[in-house]
Design a protein around this nucleic acid. Structure first.
Lengths: 148, 148
DNA sequence: GCATATTGCTTGAAGGCATCAACCATCTAT
DNA sequence: ATAGATGGTTGATGCCTTCAAGCAATATGC
């Protein structure tokens, strides 16, 4: 293989990124994701954390579970849910089987809000929809591999 | 193609993820990335934001630039840099060419700290190093495509 | 040159998030 | 029935975040 072709090969294929470069790109991607999320939440007067909690409530769940999913102290969740409840996006229902447990439930308004946030996010990250089947599979596999 | 083979095909190839599923996985990945980052920073008594600022200071830069990179108010950076400076991880140097500008510089201790945080992060995300050249290229391309 | 923006940074006030210790109510186990 | 574990809240403290106001230094316009 001539040296010219070798150079051409380099130019078209380019060297694979180092782990350090990938780490940088991950940092940028994560920052970008949360920036989008914060903006989408902010459009409804919600903080990132409030938006996150709404997004988790696909089904009612105890405060405790929310704390575990958010990887934070339970006392933290109290305040966040308080503020969501003050806006009627969420309500607490004490579990009849175990009256210590308070299940957090989305109100109708809460469902509408989370739906709009999700919609905004998908129109913001249009590129996701434009990936072909192959790329979607690869992206899913790679994300799952790096963050097991 | 018989229905059996079709089912087998499904089972081995599986359907490509929908954009919504990818969005979920992105949410998990971004959360995981920041959790790792927060832990790595926390090991040195630093918050996520303080760690982020240290990580940005590969070269000295004005407070203003830091605010732009962090996408936050300039007044915010004042406090963060104050706390980093109180621990001698960083110092302010007023720019001789424009004495309004204060360039934030890593101290030797700051360099060591950021190096350790980076090291911790790369050992945490070992999977990055285990990707082959093909996967690294693909991951870089996909991340760049989704978060341009 | 000099008055007037403009820019870079800081301060103070107000609110949300994060963690810890202490507490109450409820459930579980012996 | 008593002791311990669990779910949730409260209060204190510190950090992040934004906004409005302000100071210092530089740029701009005449």
């Amino acid at each position: 293989m001539s040296i010219i072709l070798a150079i051409l090969g380099f130019m078209t294929e380019s060297a694979p990124p180092t782990p350090a470069q990938l780490m940088d790109q991950l940092a940028r991607a994560a920052a970008a994701y949360y920036r989008h999320f914060a903006v989408a939440s902010g459009e409804h007067g919600l903080t990132l954390m409030q938006g996150k909690v709404l997004g988790l409530l696909r089904r009612p769940m105890p405060m405790r579970t929310l704390a575990e999913l958010l990887v934070c102290d339970a006392s933290n969740v109290t305040g966040i849910v308080d503020r969501l409840q003050a806006r009627d996006l969420v309500r607490r229902e004490t579990d009849p089987a175990d009256r210590r447990i308070k299940n957090v439930v989305l109100t109708t308004e809460g469902e509408r809000t989370v739906e709009r946030i999700r919609a905004r996010l998908t129109t913001d990250l249009t590129a996701l929809e434009q990936l072909d089947d192959e790329d979607r599979r690869a992206f899913q596999r790679l994300l799952g591999q790096v963050f097991p």
